[in-house]
Design a protein around this nucleic acid. Structure first.
Length: 303
DNA sequence: GGTATTTGACCATC
DNA sequence: GATGGTCAAATACC
């Protein structure tokens, strides 16, 4: 796989963010207008009607962008394959033979060999390779046409709990501070669920997730009420009830879908310049308005 | 001494 | 034969 720049991963994603920001700004303006006295005869001013059209347009555009199937978008390609893929047995040979059957008739060139993306495969681009799980490195390879080697990790709990989750981590060639992380399989091991906001200024939006008595990610989806603690400042921890009281949507979504959050936060970093000029930011640097909006939006959209 | 990482070798795939 | 993924012995670290 060649090296990917985040902005090349999906130009539509960037546009999606811009459309969502426009929609949010429009809604805010509309709210301000609606708080003012209505015009003669009790009718809303023409500017309010124009804003409604603008907002509807933004959200329509956003929805169509979410249907992105761009050939240049690796994320979309992987997700598309995930949607059509069937659960794999974990047998690499059978997986690869399955991929061959879907491949175009044109034989791929050498160096284009890729591990099959199954229903348990997804990719992220993040400023850190930390994701709250314990991984053990088992290999590293120089990859053709890639500046940085690819590192191979498997779950630390594979020997004792048989957890088959693995991941591959590779620095992006043109953005060495970003990591392309490809996950294979879900964790079936048990560990502790904790969400902490890193205080490292280099990665101010990172959330760490550790599950507590969770038997699988599937269970995690079905029971979004696992104990969660959220560190909003260094060495200061908030209880789940405190946090969920302040940010109920964030807490629920974090419990329900940690992977989505990593995606979301990476996306947020990409668009920080756009967001920061239009939204409020909490004391620890995490833009809760933005997160809440994204959560509201994303929870209605299943990949 | 136990655990994690490194790295060359092996194997499957193309 | 080239490439990517994994294994496993050697090494490093705590």
């Amino acid at each position: 796989m060649g090296t990917l720049r985040p902005e090349k991963l999906c130009a539509n994603r960037k546009r999606l963010m811009e459309e969502l920001v426009m929609g949010r700004d429009g809604a805010a303006q509309l709210r301000d207008l609606l708080e003012k006295p209505t015009g003669p005869g009790g009718s809303w001013p023409a500017s309010a009607k124009g804003l409604v059209v603008k907002i509807l347009g933004s959200f329509s555009a956003s929805l169509s962008l979410l249907k992105c199937t761009s050939e240049t978008c690796e994320v979309c390609k992987i997700r598309a394959s995930v949607r059509v893929g069937s659960p794999s047995s974990g047998d690499r040979r059978s997986e690869d033979s399955g991929e061959s059957s879907k491949r175009p008739a044109v034989k791929e060139r050498r160096g284009c060999y890729k591990r099959r993306k199954t229903s348990d495969t997804w990719m992220k681009i993040l400023p850190t390779m930390e994701d709250g799980h314990a991984w053990r490195k088992y290999g590293q390879k120089e990859i053709l046409n890639a500046k940085f080697p690819r590192c191979y990790f498997r779950c630390t709990h594979k020997p004792d709990q048989g957890c088959l989750a693995t991941k591959q981590v590779q620095k992006l060639q043109e953005e060495p501070h970003m990591y392309q992380i490809t996950y294979f399989g879900h964790h079936t091991c048990t560990n502790t669920l904790k969400i902490s906001l890193e205080c490292d200024p280099i990665k101010p939006y990172l959330l760490n997730f550790e599950s507590n008595n969770i038997t699988s990610d599937q269970d995690h989806h079905h029971h979004p009420s696992y104990p969660i603690s959220v560190k909003t400042e260094c060495n200061k921890e908030e209880t789940e009830s405190n946090f969920s009281g302040k940010f109920p949507v964030v807490a629920a979504a974090a419990a329900a879908e940690p992977n989505m959050w990593a995606d979301l936060l990476a996306m947020r970093s990409d668009h920080e310049d756009v967001i920061s000029s239009t939204t409020t930011t909490s004391s620890h640097g995490l833009d809760m308005d933005f997160l809440n909006e994204c959560v509201d939006f994303e929870t209605d959209f299943s990949w």
